[in-house]
Simulated scan of single mutants.
Amino acid sequence: MNTTPVRGRRGRCWQSGACLALLLGAAWLARRRWPTVAHGALRLAAADQGWLLVAATAVVGTWVCSALAQQGAVTRRLPGGRLVAAQFAASAAGHVLPAGLGAGAVNLRFLMRCGLPAGRGASALAVKAVAGAVVRLVLIAVLAPACPGLLRIPHVSAAALLAGLGTAVLAGVLLRVRVWPRCRGAVAAVAADVRALHARPGRAAALWGGSLAFAGLHALVLFAVTQAVELALSPARVALLYLAASGAAALLPTPGGLGSLDAALAFALTASGTPASAAASAVLGYRLLTVWLPLLPGLLVLGVLIRRRVL
């Protein structure tokens, strides 16, 4: 008897339940802090329109950079216009389904339509994701010394540290025994793709350059919004706050970081000394430009791409 579909449904139920719980928690927090949120919205309405235009332009650039990084993750040449359109549609789909499932499904379907086998397409998505994570970690390591005291390591007791270490060791043993034999072939395929890509300097430059520009433009969006609401924060501090907050939010499986990224950004801004209402304005502006305004057009583009069998 095949129990894989049952396990898959059970896993999706757990993920949906966790997502719903996080969204309800975010809604409860917003309701509790509603005066601060409302004041932030009013402040955003009177923000500098020039800086908001800069932020909106940077948002458009993120889709182009995502397309560049995706092209860099495959050796086959992809159709440029349809690739950018697919990234726009994928960003909208990623805000509907949790943990990046929507964006991953759209990109995988696009790569398969371009002639890549499913395994090779999944490998390309993994290469792109790993490159993005490495770029963010490097940027944090570079920016942290330039902004001393901005990121504070919380105090952890010796007992908690030992418990965490024991859990990590146990997880490592379980992965080695149960998971690694099943994933060995996939890891080998990803490693082979990475070697093939870096044998072509143009593809490697597209992968790393697109990943770097993608993270940088998202930081620019947040910085432009902070300038629009008259927050006195330097570009380096805003970039570091964004990278740290988005990294923390990635651990929570909400659609597009909805709720988790908002809370992480608000916490990071207020922890750096920003007033709560001003932090709420910056977060609202960032999410309005990156999520809510492009959401409906992105879903319409997704429908068009499906209708034209691009996906």
Rank of each mutant, 00 (worst) to 15 (best):
V54T: 11
R120I: 02
L293C: 01
A90T: 08
A168R: 09
C65N: 07
A171H: 04
T226A: 13
A266T: 02
V187G: 06
V142K: 07
A160F: 09
A219C: 15
A122C: 08
A213Y: 02
L150W: 12
H198A: 09
L111F: 15
L78G: 06
V74S: 11
A46F: 04
V238T: 15
L108C: 13
R309F: 03
L125E: 03
S91A: 14
T274P: 04
V142S: 07
L108V: 13
G119K: 12
A73V: 02
A199K: 08
R43Y: 06
G210M: 07
A73G: 05
F214P: 02
L24D: 06
L295A: 06
T226Y: 03
A18S: 12
L305G: 00
G72D: 06
G303K: 04
R120Q: 14
H218D: 03
A206V: 04
A141K: 07
L233V: 10
A27T: 03
A205I: 02
N2L: 11
G185H: 12
C65Q: 11
C114W: 13
A188L: 10
H218F: 15
R10Q: 11
T62P: 05
G115C: 04
P98Y: 12
A141R: 09
W292S: 03
L143V: 02
R184V: 07
I306M: 11
A266H: 14
Q227H: 09
P253W: 11
W292Q: 01
G17T: 07
H39Y: 00
A38Q: 14
A89L: 11
L222D: 02
A204S: 15
A191M: 14
A188P: 00
V64T: 10
A205N: 02
V84C: 10
W208A: 04
A263W: 13
V138M: 09
A146Y: 05
A205C: 05
I306C: 08
L175E: 00
G172L: 04
R10H: 07
L139V: 08
A47C: 12
G256W: 12
L108K: 09
L289E: 04
L311H: 01
A99G: 09
A189L: 11
V134N: 04
H95E: 00
M112K: 13
A118R: 14
L197E: 03
V221E: 03
L288M: 07
F110E: 02
R287I: 00
L174K: 08
L52S: 03
V106C: 09
A171W: 08
A163Q: 11
P181I: 11
Y286P: 01
L220A: 14
R43M: 15
L52Y: 11
A159V: 13
V156M: 14
F110G: 00
Q49A: 14
G202S: 09
F223K: 07
L22K: 04
V156P: 09
L170N: 03
L53W: 10
V187W: 15
